[in-house]
Simulated assay, not measured.
Amino acid sequence: MMSERIVHPFPPVYSSESRILILGSFPSAASRAQEFYYGHPRNRFWPLLAALLGVAEPPHSIEEKREMLLQHHIALYDAVTACTITGSADSSMQSIIPADLSSIFQAAPIQAVFANGTKAYKVCIERIGIAAIKLPSTSPANARFGFTELLTAWKQILPKLL
């Protein structure tokens, strides 16, 4: 598989009522093909968020996903706006350009930033210069955390949404 230079292909999701910002690292190949966040069918992000928020059924369409985020005051984006990457592997990311989050912070009263995984966390701290709370990755590549462990770790987003 070849490395390729990719610019983030879709915009952040947020509104003037967003209270938290969840940052992934960079869209996977499946997400890039779908043109929306966490598009890999085995990524646990959408089922996890639905369970945390008490939503009976995880959203399926992009519009349902966007609506669930905004309804619960969640902004969503990625820490990297462009990079050279091989497939979907965070470990292969090079020539990283960090995301400019100023439009999100100007438009929304963000109370906390949560990083979905180590790469997002490192980019937040080292490249963007913002304090972020590191959460275990929802990626299927993160086999160390089962769904129950993820649910427990991710519960810390809930107090910031109240």
Rank of each mutant, 00 (worst) to 15 (best):
A89W: 10
L161K: 08
C124E: 03
S18Y: 11
F114I: 03
I74Q: 04
Q34M: 15
E4T: 14
F105L: 09
S15C: 13
K134N: 07
P58V: 02
I128C: 02
I62P: 02
N43I: 00
P59I: 07
H72V: 06
K160R: 11
S16F: 11
R32T: 06
M2V: 12
T118E: 12
F145Q: 02
E64I: 05
L53T: 04
Y77A: 13
V80A: 07
I110N: 01
A51E: 10
K155N: 13
H40T: 08
R144M: 09
S95V: 07
R144P: 00
P136E: 05
Y121R: 01
C124Y: 05
E57M: 11
I96V: 15
D100E: 11
P136C: 08
K134Y: 03
K65Y: 02
P9S: 14
I20H: 02
E63C: 05
A120D: 03
H73D: 09
R44T: 02
P98S: 06
R44C: 04
M68R: 08
E64K: 10
S16C: 13
L101W: 04
A143H: 13
A120V: 07
I85D: 01
I20F: 08
V123S: 07
T148N: 11
H40P: 02
G39K: 04
L150D: 02
L150T: 02
P47H: 07
F45D: 00
S139H: 01
V123Q: 09
A79L: 01
L52E: 01
I128M: 05
A115S: 15
